Simulated scan of single mutants.
Amino acid sequence: MYPNVDDGTETPSVQIPYDPKTTLHIHEHLPPEPFTGVYGPSPRAPLDWSRWANLESWQIDRTQFALANPPLETAPPGPLSHTLTITGSKTLRDRGRGGAHVVTCFLDGDTSTEYVAKIYDGADYPLGSRERGCHDCMLLADRDYSIEAWAYRTMQPLIGGTVVPTYHGSWTFACHTGQHDQPQRWVRMVLMELINDECMLDIITRAETDAGKNVDYKQLPSEDFRIRVLQSIIESNLTIWWLGRVTHDDLSPRNIMLKPDGSVVIVDFAQSSIYDFTARHDQHPRMLDPTQLPPSPIEQWWPVPCGFADEDGRWGGWVPQRWCEDKVLAAEWLVETYRDDARFGKPSEWWLNREYHAGDGERVLRLLESLGRRPAGAAGEAKGSVLEQ
């Protein structure tokens, strides 16, 4: 049973029964189509806050709230079912936020194969009020479930088990409430391959000093290896977009599993954009011309790959310091790495001759001219700089 929550925090510490050895009886489930953001309006009825008007979010009984605002219904649960046994937790709580639970598990008593289950229990999502941002925890859980389930369903036939985990379907299970009138409520989840490699964030965190303000580079892998990982991230992210027709939109070390050879598996697609469900569903470049090559990483991530040298420091020193101090070095690496790579197309003439390159200095202009930019003084050139932004 979920107890009443009265701890004075914005994100309640709900007692969730997802501890090791917990058994869940899961049934196959069709997720609702993605909603909010690029997908369009929510199919959920607007929340009636009047029922909770006299309560702060931390005073609301989360079981009662979940029962009053159940997950979206689609088709009835399918005939396929399993007994799932939880073996451990991999949940990372970012700055105290609530959200989905990530647990390891096995199915039907077979301990030889472990999986990862991501559980979207709205009772452990952020809850606010109309005045405090309308954080409807059940809506947030449904949104994450709908987007992530369909992202994996879309990618599975194309790239599942390569740069993203193998997807083993979407599921629902009954959670006991301990209440006589409504003894159970339903919770959604997805099941995926367990990636037994290390999260990039864990490697960075071990090297942090002074409460994360500085990095002990001796605790990080070599610079050559780190650059190889960045290259793998670039190419994996491009593969997800080009072949999987999905953009991740939340690329961060916490969502990257790192293999010993420097290759990566990217996880957590709850913020992703799935072309098949957006207004531009028929505008993906591969659909317009199946014969064309993926775009050049030079054009896609110029001048610093993937914004790895961003100011918020989330990459924790993984990026070579020299790239951060001189972004032209990163641009030179991009050109050297991908200039003659036959897997990708060439930088477009439109991009090479964009006016904002003109203010980036002679080193950059020479790089771009080596790729086909019109020489200085040619028509169409103007001032501006991205390296100074």
Score class of each variant (00 low, 15 high):
Gly8Asp: 01
Val14Ala: 10
Asp19Ile: 13
Lys21His: 08
Lys21Pro: 00
Thr22Met: 08
His25Gly: 03
Glu28Cys: 09
Phe35Tyr: 15
Thr36His: 09
Pro41Asp: 09
Pro46Tyr: 09
Arg51Gln: 07
Ser57Glu: 08
Asp61Phe: 11
Pro70Trp: 06
Pro71Arg: 04
Gly78Tyr: 04
Thr85Arg: 06
His101Ser: 10
Val102Met: 03
Thr113Ala: 03
Tyr115Ser: 14
Tyr120Asn: 03
Gly122Tyr: 06
Gly133Ala: 06
Gly133Glu: 05
Cys137Pro: 10
Leu139Thr: 05
Leu158Lys: 15
Ile159Gly: 12
Gly161Glu: 10
Pro165Tyr: 11
Ser170Asp: 01
Trp171Met: 14
Cys175Lys: 00
Gln179Ile: 12
Ala207Trp: 05
Ala211Tyr: 09
Lys213Tyr: 13
Lys213Ala: 14
Tyr217Asn: 09
Tyr217Trp: 07
Lys218Thr: 15
Pro221Arg: 03
Ile227Glu: 00
Arg228Trp: 04
Leu230Pro: 00
Gln231Thr: 09
Ile240Val: 12
Ser252Arg: 14
Arg254Asp: 11
Asn255Pro: 02
Val267Phe: 03
Thr278Trp: 05
Asp282Val: 07
Pro297Arg: 07
Pro303Arg: 12
Cys306Tyr: 07
Asp312Glu: 13
Gly316Ser: 14
Val319Ala: 09
Asp326Val: 10
Val328Leu: 09
Leu329Tyr: 05
Tyr338Leu: 08
Asp341Glu: 05
Arg343Asn: 14
Pro347Cys: 10
Leu352Pro: 09
Asn353Ile: 04
Ala358Glu: 03
Arg366Trp: 05
Leu367Ala: 08
Leu367Met: 11
Pro375Glu: 02
Gly377Asn: 01
Lys383Asn: 14
Gly384Asp: 01
Ser385Val: 10
Gln389Met: 15
